[in-house]
Design a protein around this nucleic acid. Structure first.
Lengths: 161, 161
DNA sequence: TCCATAATTGAGCAGGAAGCTCAAAACAGC
DNA sequence: GCTGTTTTGAGCTTCCTGCTCAATTATGGA
């Protein structure tokens, strides 16, 4: 999928920000909150949705369209006494999209977005410097074969019931 | 958070199914599609949202409320000639929520939900039997410290613009 | 089997949003 | 300073929302 994206301006970003926080927000509500005419927001919303930047009616957004082309999964081995502070520090980084504590290899798993590999390196260095972090292991996401979906699972539950 | 969930009936599941497929669906539209009174759907929707089963206005649902208490991340090493067929097979399993092709350790990463550890074992065995799968490595998600969020990243982009 | 409790339904109601068009005004970039 | 895009406000019809209430079904327990 080539990037035909006409670059998002700050108004688009403000709109996306509100939509990722509340996918069911009403157009007119958004317009008020942005200080724009209802008509303007309506047009931009439709444009974002048609361009595939806002997917699935607002559940998901296209990070690449925001300029974050790199997605990585990072497994972190942590000194358990520092686990809380490491998690808190991760929470303060915008690039960190999701954090789980796990069993198995490593203690913390996180999903990270970055503008490019250089940017990813910066994030990784930041993480490695956190007190308590012993080792990290990074996997680059090369392609998204199945985007997150809960539908089939719900349908499956339905069959049991 | 203890499970106070009053168990979801099939109507709830039908409703959830439609909402995960379209978080911006209108109540009256859902009512039509379910063959229920608008009032009924409205009440159930509110109940699900208040119970925290439908989070973030429909973006996300509580898998544990569906009876899927186990979440795991599985890294799969695959014979590259069979990669497509492995991915396709994963796509046919409801338990598989998300699949990425990755660099680094393993070739395919996926997120899997299961009812319990026994159920997880079944899913794992199924995966291991797929032609082309060489080895898997599983990490159990113990706790979700930071649920998926794109907001901070969008806000960060906004600062640059 | 019958009763009590809960769920569903349909109706009604006021307020408002959706989706659309159009012409004027503001704001670019060149 | 001019041209093309974007935004705005107004208008319009249709439909949705969120709520209440009484009546009608289920649903389960005793």
């Amino acid at each position: 999928m080539p990037r035909t994206t006409p670059r998002l301006d700050s108004t688009d970003l403000e709109l996306l920000l509100r939509l990722v926080n509340d996918p069911r927000a009403q157009i007119s509500e958004l317009a008020d909150s942005l200080g724009l005419a209802r008509n303007t927001v309506h047009t931009r919303f439709r444009r974002l949705a048609r361009a595939g930047i806002l997917r699935d009616g607002g559940r998901d957004i296209d990070l690449a369209a925001l300029g974050y082309d790199v997605l990585a999964f990072i497994t972190i081995e942590v000194d358990h006494r520092e686990l809380d502070s490491v998690v808190a520090a991760l929470g303060r980084r915008e690039h960190v999209l999701e954090v789980f504590e796990t069993s198995g290899r490593g203690d913390v798993w996180c999903r990270v977005a970055a503008r490019d590999t250089h940017n990813l390196q910066q994030v990784l260095r930041h993480i490695l410097k956190l007190p308590g972090v012993i080792r990290t292991e990074t996997s680059l996401a090369l392609s998204e074969h199945i985007p997150f979906r809960a539908g089939p699972l719900v349908r499956h539950s339905l069959a049991d019931a």
